[in-house]
Amino acid sequence: MVTQSGQGEQMGAGEQQDARQGPGQKTPRWTHEMLMNMDRRFIFVVIAIAVAAPLIFPLNLPVRSSREAEAYFNEMEKLQPGDEIIFSFDYEPDTMAELDPMSVATLRHAFRKDVRVLAQTTYAGGVGIAERILRQVAQEYDKVYGEDYVFFGYNPDYSATILRMGESIRSNYPTDHYHAPTDGIPLMKGVDCYDDIELLVTVTASALAEYWIIWAGGKYKQRIIAGNTAIQAVLIYPYYQAGQLAGFLGGLKGAAEYEKLIGVSGAGLLGMDAQSVAHLAIVCFIILGNIGFLIQKSRTKQTGGPRDSRQGG
């Protein structure tokens, strides 16, 4: 494996090698030592170039949609004009890069189908994100606040929020984020709990999708789809396999797949070239590191030295 050691460690490994070889013996030191102790700054530069170059010169590599993304798309596609969805922005600025494209694409899909959106966030840091994205996408589709969408803002304690919305959205949010009484919002006529909602969408960077599944899905039988960070996606698969989640998107790749399915290019598709090239660079580093490790292993076998340089010289 490629180690992320600095120059100090390189020197240490080189000195250890000298001590084993003894004076007078000249060996091609650069081969495996360079591969095993690559300067981490070199790796950073290569990754930076691998990410930046495709953003400046797009390669337009193909993107194939997964079964989970198609299920997510189909759930949204089933909605009829005038249907209501709850859209929960369950993330903060640290994961905007992965999740903003999902939120934008989902809202575009919803507004294009004249689906009405009840938006909220269970994270204090999600308020600014939600306001910005709602305003941007609503402007694109000429949607009117209060009639086509509403934003309730942040509500502390996600568990109480999820459970209480099953009883009454109005009692959970007596006013919207801008202090307007919820009762007076035209969109809220005849809408008060999960029974009145066709679909719940959570875009999240945490285990919150699981809590929506446990409480809104389990207790109130609310149909749910989720957008997740790549790290979180692994934990979401069992719920999808069990049918507790109707569809989900995983990471920027999931966002790109969904953008392709709705036919509107966004940050997800634009970032896929960079993602692929960066992954290729990382795979190359892993292969180079392993080649260095194998060379070192075979040499130490020949000289009868230790099996692994990490065990000491």
Partner: peptide, 27 residues
Amino acid sequence: VGFGASFGYTVMGRVSLLIGRFQYLFQ
């Protein structure tokens, strides 16, 4: 296999964050 898949997703997630910053800087 599970840990490998999880690690792969983690790498993808971290690269995505870098892409997000670069999109900000270049676009």
